[in-house]
Design a protein around this nucleic acid. Sequence first.
DNA 1: AGTTGGATGGTCT
DNA 2: GACCATCCAACTG
Length: 191
Amino acid sequence: VGRIVEVEAYLGRDDRASHARFGQTARNAPMFGPPGHAYVYLVYGMHRCLNIVVEPSGVPAAVLVRAVRPIEGFEAVREARVRAEAGRSRGTATGEAAIRERLARVPDDRLASGPGLVGAGFDIHLALSGLDLLDPASPLRLEAAPADEPAPSVQAARRIGIDYAGPPWSQAPWRLLIEGDRAVSVGPERD
DNA sequence: AGTTGGATGGTCT
DNA sequence: GACCATCCAACTG
């Protein structure tokens, strides 16, 4: 269980940073579907990124989950990351024990501080793309925060890793993060 | 503290 | 066959 502390918005066909910029394909089809579903894709050949589809069907939009603060099951998250990393580096033998030792030194609140780390730590795989995150029967679910919790202060910043899109898309403040939360991926840039 | 390069594979031209 | 909504180790200063 974890709390989402950082996201990025990708909105519409016109957004030159969005996977929907070239229209609907087999991969991005969930983005064109109903909100509340998952869109999972592979980046850089190794990391799986989790997105939450937003906007009504027909409007391709999704929110990339960039960072999660684990709340329960810290060791389960660590083990999921060990599995992900060990399974990846089969060519260069980076012993599983060494990976586990390194992750043991990662603070609990930084176990999923990045989109690729969320994918690894929460065992997100491509087969989950299209899953209904609002269905209580789903293995991966989205739930509302406890009503008695104070609303966090949210900060806006530029999206990361999409400079190729060019302005105004590369400049849009569509990265939203909880101010001062240690679980966010990297601090917002200061102008 | 900041920069660089390697790992790695699905997707779209 | 090029392009990535990334991460980490190994470097430089």
